[in-house]
Design a protein around this nucleic acid. Structure first.
Ligand SMILES: [Zn+2]
Ligand SMILES: [Zn+2]
Ligand SMILES: [Zn+2]
Ligand SMILES: [Zn+2]
Lengths: 137, 137
DNA sequence: ATGCAAATGCGACTTATTCTCATTAAGACT
DNA sequence: AGTCTTAATGAGAATAAGTCGCATTTGCAT
């Protein structure tokens, strides 16, 4: 009866308990192709188990972030948004008209960032690159 | 007696009133070489005129942002931080140990961003590039 | 099956920011 | 200088996002 998902295994390996709320939240993240915020995850979770509380969503997101299972983004002003972390690193372009989030990667930008930081005597631990744009006609 | 600063002129040209609180806040921004948040600006302003309220700081920062006099940054988690907008565009590296903010520019990254957005069919309206790092030993 | 610590639910709290509304005061016009 | 109009302010209430304290529940090692 061990049908543990990649994420469920990650939880256990971190010495954490695989509780019902965590299972549900992990399932939601696996199924989401978007970048939901805590309130959205809460709503989706409520459909599977109405007992789950918003505080648990926040706590779980923090735990998942710490174990490396999810990534947290804080786009312009809005609440934190999350996505699974098992994908290749990418950055985001946000459509300022529709709010749509487009993902992209640029090895050259990544390398330039590294070089810039190094020149300043720093080692990059994390970075954020967000482009805000509007569709060209 | 018309010793209007660049910013004060900007305010008037936007059809806004040049009030005492606005003068004070503008002076503070002119003198700050750092990236203060609303609370810090409030404290500095209180030294010049104790009547000024925090709500006015927030309102004024919004107005100044709209008139293009200041730029708003939202670094990792913390409150919004501001700086004058009359400088050359630059991005930021934040020291995760000390909180220090180092500024840098990279024409190559800027150009790459433009090219990426264009390829995706977008025109960049704004962007954020923040590096979070720790000093190399 | 039992026990204990970890995790949860709930509400209170915090932090950052915005809003409401009565009062003040810029700036325009005598 | 005095008056008027209305934008801007101060003070505090309200809101939004997230965290915390604590009694209760529950995963899971024994
Ligand atoms: Zn990147
Ligand atoms: Zn993404
Ligand atoms: Zn830039
Ligand atoms: Zn700067």
């Amino acid at each position: 009866m061990n049908e543990l998902s990649r994420y469920e295994r990650q939880i256990k390996q971190a010495g954490l308990r695989l509780t019902a709320p965590r299972r549900i939240i992990l399932r939601i993240l696996e199924q989401s192709g978007d970048h939901p915020d805590a309130a959205e995850i809460f709503q989706r979770a409520a459909k599977m188990d109405a007992r789950i509380s918003l505080a648990t969503i926040y706590r779980t997101m923090k735990v998942l972030e710490e174990t490396g299972a999810v990534e947290r983004h804080a786009f312009q002003g809005g609440p934190a948004r999350f996505e699974q972390a098992d994908r290749e690193h990418h950055d985001h372009l946000i459509d300022i008209e529709t709010g749509a989030v487009v993902e992209f990667t640029s090895p050259r930008i990544e390398e330039l960032q590294r070089a810039i930081a190094e020149e300043l005597g720093y080692e990059i631990v994390d970075h954020r690159l967000e482009l805000y744009g509007r569709k060209m006609t």
